[in-house]
Computed example of a mutant assay.
Amino acid sequence: MLCATPLNSPDFSTLTDRELEVLRLLGRGGSNRQMARWLGITERTTKAHISRIIEKLKITGRIEAIFLANYYHDALCTSAGCTSGLPKGQ
């Protein structure tokens, strides 16, 4: 029998503002290329941010980061106008 275990809340305070922004976009399904365009950075920099997010949160990979971004959306998105993290018109 499989049992669900409660999630330990990740320490998002270890992430920079830019890493939080990338995590929110990642949670919305953005590709590295899309996120780079939206943030005005290179795709390589986007990949570096994702790698640091995975390392800092002590998770196994991108899929887990996407899950956490969605599961903890309310904690990650503190602005009143935040609905998706996507730039306007997306």
Results as ranks from 00 to 15, higher is better:
37 R>Y: 07
49 H>E: 07
42 T>G: 15
11 D>C: 12
9 S>Q: 13
23 L>I: 03
49 H>C: 09
53 I>C: 00
54 I>R: 00
32 N>V: 06
15 L>D: 01
14 T>E: 08
50 I>C: 12
41 I>V: 15
35 M>W: 04
18 R>H: 08
38 W>M: 11
28 R>M: 11
5 T>G: 06
83 T>Y: 10
15 L>C: 05
82 C>D: 12
78 T>E: 13
14 T>F: 01
62 R>G: 01
53 I>D: 02
26 L>P: 01
73 H>M: 05
3 C>K: 14
11 D>P: 06
50 I>W: 01
37 R>Q: 14
87 P>I: 15
63 I>S: 15
26 L>H: 07
43 E>T: 13
57 L>V: 06
24 R>Q: 12
82 C>I: 04
4 A>V: 11
42 T>M: 02
70 N>T: 08
20 L>Q: 06
60 T>D: 13
76 L>E: 03
82 C>V: 06
21 E>W: 06
71 Y>N: 09
62 R>Y: 14
38 W>A: 15
15 L>F: 02
45 T>L: 09
85 G>Y: 04
66 I>Y: 01
60 T>Q: 12
50 I>A: 07
58 K>C: 09
39 L>M: 15
64 E>F: 04
42 T>Y: 04
36 A>Q: 06
25 L>D: 03
11 D>M: 03
22 V>D: 01
6 P>N: 06
43 E>P: 08
78 T>I: 13
40 G>D: 14
35 M>Y: 01
12 F>L: 02
75 A>F: 09
2 L>R: 12
52 R>Y: 05
53 I>Q: 00
25 L>A: 09
86 L>C: 14
21 E>G: 01
46 T>A: 15
54 I>K: 06
83 T>D: 10
33 R>H: 10
54 I>H: 01
48 A>I: 09
9 S>R: 13
28 R>E: 11
15 L>A: 03
78 T>C: 10
46 T>M: 13
83 T>I: 13
2 L>C: 04
29 G>M: 10
40 G>V: 07
30 G>V: 08
85 G>K: 04
88 K>A: 15
84 S>T: 15
78 T>Q: 15
88 K>F: 11
19 E>T: 01
81 G>F: 03
37 R>I: 11
10 P>W: 00
50 I>V: 15
35 M>P: 00
53 I>G: 01
4 A>W: 02
57 L>W: 07
28 R>T: 06
76 L>C: 02
71 Y>Q: 13
48 A>T: 12
50 I>H: 00
64 E>R: 14
64 E>N: 09
42 T>F: 01
34 Q>P: 02
10 P>H: 07
29 G>T: 07
4 A>F: 08
89 G>K: 10
79 S>P: 00
63 I>F: 10
89 G>R: 10
30 G>W: 07
65 A>T: 08
56 K>G: 05
48 A>Q: 12
32 N>H: 14
79 S>M: 04
4 A>R: 10
9 S>I: 12
3 C>E: 13
27 G>M: 03
44 R>V: 14
84 S>M: 08
64 E>C: 08
38 W>I: 02
2 L>D: 10
64 E>K: 13
87 P>C: 09
19 E>W: 00
22 V>L: 03
4 A>I: 12
62 R>K: 14
49 H>K: 00
40 G>F: 04
64 E>W: 01
11 D>H: 10
10 P>L: 05
44 R>W: 07
61 G>H: 10
90 Q>L: 12
88 K>I: 11
88 K>Q: 14
